[in-house]
């Protein structure tokens, strides 16, 4: 049981890192439908380096994060001339392209996947997730963080105020790529096996949705989203398994997605800004004076 809980803590930690990887671009107004693909890049880079060359784990991790960060940078730079729907399409295409390429590269094991010799335990992963969490929180409290949020709300005015909107977006997207790469590397080291199906477009969608549902106005949203959508499906799996009903893995994966889908649709109708909003958080903390309302 304790092993089970450990495993869940690690998955939660990885999901938290991934959530912030997706959050950073979204916080500047860019939907990234390729989160899992950047994770795949990091995971395969880590797997490849550790099988081919071998190096201290932190070095491998740094290299894999840089590789996916670099790819994110190039993609962002070339695609951000356009915005809106084209960016969504580009990240989507990128995700499909990455899995399409991995399947064809024998050095990466093709469709069979790759075994990773090095192992990292749950402890370091949880610590790194904590560092990422704190780091993103600090970042959002800087003027750069303010610029990101201003860009999200109104890029024309942000530009007028002297904020380099394009630079801000590219930086946020790149940083997101770095975080996804770290999550990917850690994934490879923890599970000691990577296969391309893990990082398919459904995973990218899943990732984006739980960040959006958590809420992207504050740094807490992604954390809540990641926690909810890691823990609830596990509980659900536990319940289903104990009812003796389902046995096949497919069944509970499907349920997980269906529940997320239903929550998404309902949330977009009822509360499209996500669970955690600024106004809501303020009210909860009760640290505001009542302001006059619009009549």
């Amino acid at each position: 049981m304790s092993g089970y809980l450990d495993g869940m803590a690690v998955i939660l930690a990885l999901n938290v890192i991934l959530a912030y990887a997706v959050f950073l671009p979204v916080a500047t107004g860019q939907l990234n439908l390729g989160g899992a693909a950047f994770q795949a890049v990091g995971a395969y880079a880590a797997a490849y380096i550790s099988t081919q060359y071998g190096a201290p784990l932190p070095v491998i991790l740094a290299v894999s994060a840089s590789v996916s960060g670099l790819i994110a940078f190039v993609l962002a730079l070339s695609i951000l001339r356009t915005k809106g729907v084209y960016l969504v399409l580009a990240t989507f295409a990128f995700a499909q392209f990455v899995s399409g390429v991995i399947i064809n590269v024998d050095a990466l094991g093709g469709a069979l996947g790759m075994t990773v010799p090095e192992h990292v335990g749950g402890g370091p992963i949880i610590v790194i997730a904590g560092v990422v969490l704190v780091g993103v929180m600090l970042l959002m409290q800087t003027r750069f963080g303010l610029a990101m949020r201003a860009t999200h709300d109104d890029d024309t005015v942000a530009e007028l105020m002297g904020i380099g909107v394009r630079r801000t977006r590219v930086a946020a997207f790149t940083l997101g790529g770095v975080l996804a790469g770290i999550a990917g590397g850690l994934y490879a080291f923890y599970f000691n096996f990577v296969e391309v199906q893990t990082f398919d477009s459904l995973s990218s969608i899943y990732l984006l949705l739980f960040v959006l549902l958590g809420g992207t106005q504050t740094v807490w949203g992604p954390l809540i989203g990641a926690a909810f959508f890691t823990i609830v499906p596990e509980l659900f799996r536990y319940v289903v398994a104990n009812m003796g009903g389902a046995s096949a893995g497919q069944l509970d994966t499907s349920w997980r997605f269906i529940i997320l889908g239903i929550i998404t649709v309902v949330m977009m109708v009822a509360r499209p800004e996500g669970v955690v909003t600024r106004t809501g958080l303020g009210r909860l903390l009760g640290n505001r004076r009542a302001a006059p309302r619009e009549a």
Binding site: G29, T151, H152, L202, L209, L212, L260, G261, I263, V269
Partner: peptide, 18 residues
Amino acid sequence: DATEHAIPLVSSLGFLLI
């Protein structure tokens, strides 16, 4: 704002999963 117009898109991703 920038992501508000994506609400139907996000909903449609929900339907995709369902």
